[in-house]
Amino acid sequence: MGASSRARAVEAARAGEWQQLPGLASRLAAGPTALWGISSSGAVQRWTGSGWALEGGPATRISVSADSGSLPWIVRPNGNIWRRTLEGPWRQVAGTGVDIAAGGADNTWTLGSGGIFRWNGSGWTRADGSAARIAAGSSGEVWIIDPNGRIYRRSSDRWELKPGSGVDIAVASPTRVAITSVDREAYLWTGSDWRQLPGVDAVSIAIDNQHVYALDPAGKIWKLNA
Score class of each variant (00 low, 15 high):
191 G>V: 04
104 G>H: 02
117 F>A: 05
211 H>D: 07
136 A>Q: 08
202 A>W: 00
134 I>T: 06
69 G>K: 13
98 V>Y: 12
192 S>W: 13
199 G>Q: 02
34 A>I: 10
154 R>N: 05
174 P>K: 15
166 G>Q: 02
183 D>W: 04
105 A>Q: 15
141 E>S: 02
222 W>F: 01
27 R>M: 03
106 D>A: 13
30 A>W: 00
141 E>I: 02
165 S>T: 00
141 E>A: 02
199 G>E: 03
34 A>K: 10
51 G>R: 10
181 S>P: 02
174 P>V: 13
48 T>D: 07
196 Q>D: 10
115 G>Q: 06
124 W>I: 11
79 G>R: 07
124 W>V: 09
180 T>S: 02
114 G>S: 02
179 I>R: 00
82 W>M: 06
58 P>V: 09
100 I>Q: 05
8 R>G: 13
191 G>S: 05
23 G>L: 03
157 D>L: 09
177 V>Y: 00
51 G>A: 10
166 G>N: 05
32 P>M: 03
191 G>A: 06
124 W>M: 09
76 R>L: 08
110 T>G: 14
225 N>R: 14
44 V>I: 10
153 R>N: 09
128 D>W: 13
72 P>R: 06
105 A>W: 15
157 D>Y: 12
7 A>E: 09
59 A>S: 08
196 Q>P: 09
172 A>G: 13
51 G>S: 10
184 R>A: 00
94 A>Q: 12
140 G>L: 04
183 D>P: 07
183 D>E: 11
194 W>P: 02
106 D>I: 13
185 E>M: 01
110 T>P: 15
24 L>S: 15
139 S>L: 10
119 W>R: 11
46 R>T: 12
85 T>H: 12
209 N>M: 09
143 W>V: 02
186 A>R: 01
26 S>N: 15
79 G>T: 04
94 A>D: 08
207 I>M: 07
139 S>Q: 14
9 A>I: 15
133 R>P: 01
175 T>G: 14
216 D>G: 03
145 I>N: 00
186 A>T: 03
207 I>F: 05
